[in-house]
Nucleic acid binder design. Structure first.
Lengths: 250, 250
DNA sequence: AGTACGCGTTGACATGAATCAATTCGGACG
DNA sequence: CGTCCGAATTGATTCATGTCAACGCGTACT
């Protein structure tokens, strides 16, 4: 079985073992046949570890690879000429970073580990070569990139139309479902990012984020002590996010 | 030569002639070898015409194809459950629509012709098949999708950090450069979209858009009569958009 | 143990843009 | 040519959120 096949390549210590990875249903291997997984393992470099605050890459790094988060979490942001930062996303285990850079020579954003984080590296040159041979993998890449566009549109929508409360409720719910996908509690988790990052990501001032958190807490919707968050009333949160669109239908 | 090869297929009237298309440096064929262009022509269905206001597809349409704008212009938007609209982009000749839908069964947005518009259709199934065979084409697809992600991040940034004036200046400059790319005047053009669409796209109220237009006009930066726009002082517009980031460096 | 510093919270106030309301403009059509 | 209707403009007012400022809390460092 698959386990035996892997032994054939045991000589390379950096080789990934996608077969055993608990995230294999999230990350690239999703749509791949058992035996194709070996080809993917061949090109993946696994196990690079970054400490809290370390850059996985920044906008001056030549673009070579995409990265999948294996454990920990990552913040991506664009730094403007003036030094202003715009957070473009948070990435959790099983999610792929760098898709926005596939049209550039350097990375289109800066990726920073929010905590001790382990990533798998996919050199694009080899990845493109491989996707040319494996239609399922190619399809999956299109799928992931398309998803990324949709996510970004969703964010734009949130930013342009929704109130502070709606934005924060949406973020909490998004994080919740992403934790759940990893078989972790969707109601009781620890935010990997600072209030500042949340504010920046959602286009708000830190103070506003803080105020909304306490407001939610006073309403008994959440319980928050620093980065520890407990969602006490998920339905209420969903109501908050939908309130906007519901107004349209009334 | 290539021209002769095309004659072999003259029987199919819907066949596109990418060879002759003046947009071939913008659209998909960009990175393609002369002789590969024929394979692409084989799968492209050209010449579908839509009148002003007609839908090229909407969110209930099963996703089958991407579309390249040949002439005219297109607005894409997401319609929420509540009927609210969020404009996600404007597409001009040479630009590709539908990349955000490649992860879904139905289109992720609704595409509406802003004027009489002609599009080329790329059935995705055939397109994926072809990109599997032509590495350059595959690379170009990745490039386009990545670009789309970047655009959307750029929009998110505009929405979350910039003032009404900055957003509108940025839009005008974007349109300007896209007109220029088509060898048209970059300072004297006609907006294909209504004020309403601009407002929605930029996350503003129509009234605000209107006010900013007149403010720019009073400052002698632009001249606008309805949809006819003339950029009188492009540098001033660039200053407006950069003002924000420049503050950071001061 | 004391200090300092980053981070988060809270309050007072200012403001840019939304909203509400009225008017004008411009094209379509009888 | 006048009428009609949607689109655009303009003005007055309101409101959500940003900004400024102060303070508390926990952690790291000396």
């Amino acid at each position: 079985m698959a386990q035996a096949i892997r032994l054939r390549q045991a000589s390379s210590p950096l080789k990934a073992s996608c077969h055993q990875c608990s995230l294999s249903n999230l990350c690239l291997p999703l749509a791949i046949e058992e035996n194709d997984l070996d080809s993917l393992e061949d090109i993946v470099q696994q196990g690079r570890i970054f400490n809290r605050g370390e850059h996985i890459f920044d906008q001056s790094t030549p673009f070579r690879s995409c990265f999948a988060v294996r454990s920990g979490s990552v913040k991506t942001s664009i730094i403007t000429e003036g030094g202003e930062e715009q957070v473009t996303g948070f990435f959790m285990p099983g999610e792929l970073i760098g898709l926005d850079s596939m049209s550039s020579d350097s990375y289109a954003c800066t990726a920073k580990a929010l905590e001790r984080t382990s990533v798998c590296e996919f050199p694009v040159e080899k990845l493109e070569e491989l996707t040319g041979k494996l239609p399922d993998l190619q399809h999956h890449m299109y799928h992931l990139m398309s998803q990324e566009i949709q996510n970004s549109h969703q964010l734009a929508m949130l930013l342009s139309k929704n109130t502070a409360e709606e934005r924060i409720a949406a973020l909490l719910l998004s994080l919740s479902s992403r934790f759940q996908r990893r078989r972790m509690s969707g109601t009781n988790f620890s935010l990997p990012m600072a209030r500042n990052d949340i504010a920046n990501f959602l286009g708000l001032a830190v103070e506003t984020v803080s105020r909304v958190f306490t407001r939610f807490q006073n309403q008994g919707i959440i319980k928050a002590r620093g980065r520890e968050v407990e969602l006490l009333d998920v339905e209420a949160l969903q109501m908050v996010t939908r309130e906007f669109s519901r107004q349209g239908s009334q």
